[in-house]
Design a protein around this nucleic acid. Structure first.
Length: 425
RNA sequence: GGAGAGGUGGCUGAGUGGUCGAAAGCGCCGGUUUGCUAAACCGGUGAAGGGGUCAAACCCUUCCGCAGGUUCAAAUCCUGUCCUCUCCGCCA
């Protein structure tokens, strides 16, 4: 949710954001401004009458106490009328309030000035590349062939037991997953993050707080009986950890790292994107979340990005860093980097991390504030998060990039003390 | 799942239907005293929203888990709901 004051002061900036992000109708801003007018008008009207009622009650009090009932009676009759009025005005005030809120929820966050304007993935800027693509004197295999060859991942039985996109990891495959989780969490720990194990299901209010609801509701699995949602990312429970709280400025920045499985329905996905580990309904991820002072959030975005890149580099995986353009960025972000790792067996890049600044957008929705050092008015914190990292595509690229002619796979050196083996096959 | 108790400001914790946004304490901020620190003393200190102002001051409304209801008037009474705690049952 945007700051209503910002909308009033800079309607053109909001219009531009909606255009650049292609998020929402062109008349959104005008509808929001009109709704805001309505809302404030009915609020003022309501408050005036409430004041009259309060004053009347204040007069009645003493009269009743002194037993002057006859003097109080006309006043009481007057309040009856006021209460009628209040009831109807309250109703319209609430309608206006709701109308305003629902329009506001449709307005996307404003992109940062450093973000390239563009509509398609082609407009994303490649700002950094690291590592050399591995070269082979044989045809490198895709990870699903390698996984089958070494019996690391069982997609078929996963489909039998649950459905497509829910694989079993078996033997060294399972072990590799566990090693990666441990490795990523240790890196996060070294970078000063507090480790956290959040709930894997969340309620509706939490979904609204981070913006999954109502925007991306269809992407979540729902536990209907209890009105709970399976988390699509640890971002949701971890960010909502501080929902409705006023933090101490001295506590900032707060940094959490959480490993969780993530559940996504991925409605509408198809084609080669869904092959193997490329896109799953359930996958593991270590997520990094920061709550920071508004003045520092863009510094923290870079630090967060470095934390994610450090993990990719440690595994020796060639990658590129993209600065996402306005149209490819998402509704709630102001600035977002994607990290894409080279997949030798598929001859393509795979996204393994997405690092975003939300400024106060989530904080306002989730009501996460802090009290400034000087004791001034409370302000909304800025929230950021990034994957550090998502596992399946990392597993895929480790297998593919490190395969040898005989089909065996070497494990990146830093990971070996976690896996307990240095080669598969 | 059954029975009982309770949910009040950053925290602890009082509160008789009517000057209660709410005592007191802690914490925090400012000041006095003071070699330094601490202590002591004095004063201040909730949130959201609307109006007002160059900015303040200031004015108003709402908020005592949440949602309704009774009443001229609700933190206080009634109903529902959520959560916490204790006991019982079930159980990894």
């Amino acid at each position: 949710m945007l700051d209503p004051q910002f909308l009033r002061d800079h309607p053109d900036a909001v219009r531009k954001a909606i255009r650049d992000k292609k998020a929402g109708e062109s008349d959104l801003v005008d509808r929001a401004l009109a709704a805001d007018e309505n809302r404030r008008a009915s609020l003022t009207e309501l408050q005036t009458i409430q004041q009259q009622l309060n004053e009347a009650s204040k007069q009645i009090g003493p009269l009743m106490k002194e037993g002057k009932r006859d003097e109080a009676t006309p006043l009481i009759e007057q309040t009856a009328e006021l209460k009628d009025q209040i009831k109807t005005i309250e109703e319209t005030a609430r309608e206006h309030e709701e109308a305003f809120n629902s329009v506001m929820l449709e307005i996307p966050n404003i992109p940062h000035e450093s973000v390239p304007v563009g509509m398609t993935p082609d407009d994303n800027a490649i700002v950094f590349e690291w590592g050399d693509k591995p070269s082979f004197d044989f045809e490198p295999k895709p990870h699903w062939d390698l996984a089958a060859q070494h019996n690391l991942i069982d997609f078929e039985r996963g489909a039998k037991v649950t459905g497509a996109g829910f694989p079993f990891y078996v033997g060294k495959g399972a072990r590799l997953q566990r090693a990666l989780i441990q490795f990523f969490l240790d890196l996060a720990d070294e970078a000063g993050y507090t480790e956290m194990q959040p709930p894997l299901v969340i309620n509706e209010i939490s979904g609204i707080g981070t913006g999954q609801i109502p925007d991306k509701e269809g992407q979540m699995y729902v536990a209907n009986l209890d009105d709970l949602y399976l988390i699509p990312t640890a971002e949701v429970p971890v960010t909502n950890f501080h929902r409705d709280e006023i933090l101490d400025a001295a506590e900032l920045p707060i940094k959490y790292a959480a490993y969780t499985p993530c559940f996504r329905r991925e409605a509408g996905s198809y084609g080669k994107d869904v092959r193997g580990l490329n896109r799953l309904h359930q996958f593991d991820k270590v997520e990094l979340v920061r709550f920071v002072h508004p003045d520092e959030s863009y510094d923290h975005l870079e630090h967060l990005r470095e934390d994610a890149e450090r993990a990719v580099q440690a595994l020796g995986l060639p990658y590129k860093r993209l600065l996402m353009c306005t149209g490819d960025m998402g509704f709630t972000q102001t600035k977002k980097y994607d990290l894409e790792v080279w997949s030798a067996g598929q001859d393509r890049w795979l996204e393994v991390s997405s690092i975003s600044n939300f400024e106060g957008f989530q904080a306002r929705r989730a009501n996460i504030r802090f009290r400034p050092e000087d004791g001034g008015k409370t302000q909304f914190v800025h929230t950021l998060n990034g994957s550090g990292l998502a596992l399946p595509r990392i597993v895929a690229t480790i297998l593919e990039n490190n395969q040898r002619a005989d089909g065996s796979i070497t494990i990146p050196e830093p990971l070996q003390r976690y896996t307990g083996f240095d080669v598969i096959g």
